[in-house]
């Protein structure tokens, strides 16, 4: 007790800064630190799966149709849910995704939408998160460039 009284001021300073740090870490944006790590699955492409690979996924799958009126529900396994892309970060939906135990599969007509929502959800710390696609060759160039051999460089 004697020591506590003697260094009272010090302890107050330390406690206040610890409280500030705690406050900051609890009220931060909701994204995890180390964005690189949470984006890693997209670097290797292992987060993109086709309909066939979807069948091989084990566990309790939560399939999400990212469309305004559930247009794509037919393409997804039973038990799929649908909500508009804009509502994914709503507290209720985000909590449901986070609490789901098993793979979460995203599907949208536009691959740009599912890619972006994949990144957003992954950065909030969601694991076992996949993008479902009909065409696995989205990032493959489908056209061959034919150089014009008649062009002379101007020197």
């Amino acid at each position: 007790m004697h020591i506590l009284k003697k260094y009272q001021l010090l302890f107050i300073i330390v406690i206040v800064s610890a409280a500030l740090v705690l406050f900051k870490s609890l009220t931060s944006s909701g994204f995890k630190s180390d964005a690189d790590k949470w984006a890693a699955a997209s670097f290797s492409g292992e987060n993109v799966i086709s309909q066939e690979q979807l069948k091989d996924l084990s566990g309790n799958i939560l399939a999400i149709d990212l469309s305004d009126h559930g247009e794509n529900m037919a393409k997804l396994p039973e038990g799929a849910v649908s909500f508009p892309p804009k509502s994914v970060m709503d507290d209720r939906i985000l909590r449901m995704i986070h609490q789901h135990n098993g793979p979460v599969v995203l599907y949208a007509d536009d691959l740009a939408i599912s890619a972006k929502i994949w990144m957003l959800l992954s950065q909030t710390g969601q694991t076992q998160l996949y993008v479902l696609t009909d065409s696995m060759d989205n990032e493959t160039i489908k056209y061959k460039f034919r150089p014009d051999t008649l062009i002379k460089p101007e020197l």
Binding site: F31, A35, A39, S42, V48, D110, L111, A112, I113, A115, K116, W118, M119, L120, Q123, V131, N138, E139, T140, I141
Partner: peptide, 15 residues
């Protein structure tokens, strides 16, 4: 080439 990488990159950069 497609929409995937640019989509990811856009979210990361804006984020």
């Amino acid at each position: 080439n497609g929409d995937l990488y640019s989509g990811y990159a856009l979210v990361l950069a804006r984020g």
